[in-house]
Design a binder for these strands. Structure first.
Lengths: 156, 156
DNA sequence: CTTTTTGCAAAAGGTTTGCAGATCA
DNA sequence: TGATCTGCAAACCTTTTGCAAAAAG
């Protein structure tokens, strides 16, 4: 499969996903706007997690932060995105579609870049928590470290 | 062991721990003040995690929030307390003494009260993260749910 | 008496909100 | 046209900082 072929396919898939998201929003009574669509495209293409400011930087057109916050709130209410909190005072958001199953992050303590981890056997622990009498149990697991690029920078 | 006896012992232990903490602070060049000592007592007695406002409420004497923030910063620098972030926009702090080993929390989504969990086999996962090339790896694991008291309130 | 500590008020960051004008359907 | 959406500015909330007065040693 050629590189070109692959990216064409990807673009098509993206367009479909954006369409689906816009459809869901329309059913909930929200209109389709250029900025809203641009936000959806960014989140669908790059997945995140992104802070509100990072989203603003990626926007192809100028967009007020308030607008981004308000759209983020709508996406969250529609369960299209999920919020993460890495403890540095910024909320971040990532696309929550089925293609991005439950997963965890590793956060570089230096550059704050995040990577995904496809490991999770914490579900077993959740059972223990339920046995303590809690309902609606969920969890959040974040790893912190220094990534390889920052290690190289540091020693340089 | 009678209740009275036990609490006398506990009080003695507390006094010793406060003394030790004050000593450590003195060596680092910090003076002993009533408010500082009161903060240490609260953290040592109740362990936390507490938000800054919760600490203020527990203070036996009036104390400005700025004072609490500044002392918190000193305690943190001295590694006497550790910060937690449960993703609700408030930082919380808990005593980090040896008697409180590495542990995790379960947070009630309704009343925000936290409980400790003495389970952790996530250390194994940390190894996998190191194998991805990260150094200085640590993690944070929080469980969320609805506690029994809130479940009763809800159905009432 | 010198240094640290404190309270107050102002500033700083991230986020939210009210409102009038622009945009969508 | 009537609805939602947007930008702007102001408000909000938690946390930080500057400064003069108070407390510690």
């Amino acid at each position: 499969m050629s590189q070109t072929h692959q990216s064409t396919e990807r673009l098509l898939q993206l367009a479909q996903q954006v369409e689906a998201a816009i459809g869901q929003l329309r059913e909930a009574g929200y209109k389709n706007t250029r900025k809203r669509q641009a936000l959806l495209e960014i989140l669908l293409r790059e997945h995140g997690p992104f802070s509100v400011e990072e989203l603003q930087q990626r926007m192809p057109i100028e967009c007020d932060l308030a607008t981004i916050y308000r759209n983020i709130a709508i996406f969250e209410e529609q369960k299209m995105i999920t919020a993460c909190d890495f403890g540095d005072g910024l909320k971040r958001y990532e696309w929550a579609g089925e293609e991005h199953e439950h997963h965890h992050h590793i956060i570089c303590q230096q550059c704050r870049k995040t990577d995904h981890l496809d490991l999770c056997f914490v579900g077993e622990l959740e059972k223990l928590v339920r046995e303590k009498g809690y309902t609606a149990v969920s969890h959040r697991l974040e790893f912190y470290g220094i990534c390889q690029r920052c290690q190289r920078k540091r020693s340089a």
